[in-house]
């Protein structure tokens, strides 16, 4: 890649335009040099596609919580970009336990201590957690 070929396609979503990363490109003298790049069409597309997919899944999950098919933990877990395995590590439980907590019937019976733990991992209040989707 030559210096004049370094793409400057602005990544204008989720604050991506705030960072001009450094890439290495070959100058007229044939020597490598660091050049700032606003982004590249190909990469911007891939990043946006990945975020869109997550947003779509999150919207589906929100519906399921509202319909009583999943507990609010499922929604906030995805909102925080986690899966059951990672969330389990954060709350100090086994993966299968977290998987159970995604069931509304099990969620209703969780004690306050555990709800507090979940809420603090999600950086929200217990009230926000239990009332979501009601």
């Amino acid at each position: 890649m030559k210096v004049n070929e370094v793409p400057q396609d602005i990544k204008n979503f989720k604050g991506g335009d705030k960072l001009r990363k450094l890439v290495y490109a070959v100058g007229k003298d044939g020597k490598y040099t660091g050049v700032n790049s606003a982004g590249w069409e190909a990469e911007n597309f891939a990043t946006r596609q990945a975020w869109d997919a997550m947003d779509e899944t999150l919207a589906e999950t929100e519906q399921k919580v509202k319909q009583g098919k999943l507990s609010p933990i499922a929604y906030f877990m995805q909102k925080c970009l986690m899966d059951e395995g990672l969330l389990a590590k954060y709350v100090g439980k086994w993966r299968w336990q977290v998987a159970r907590h995604l069931k509304p019937s099990v969620f209703k019976r969780l004690d306050t201590g555990l709800l507090k733990k979940y809420a603090s991992v999600f950086e929200i209040s217990v009230e926000e957690l239990v009332s979501f989707g009601q």
Partner: peptide, 9 residues
């Protein structure tokens, strides 16, 4: 998309 991100992001 993931390969592109690992390669270029």
């Amino acid at each position: 998309g993931n390969i592109i991100r690992m390669q270029e992001e």
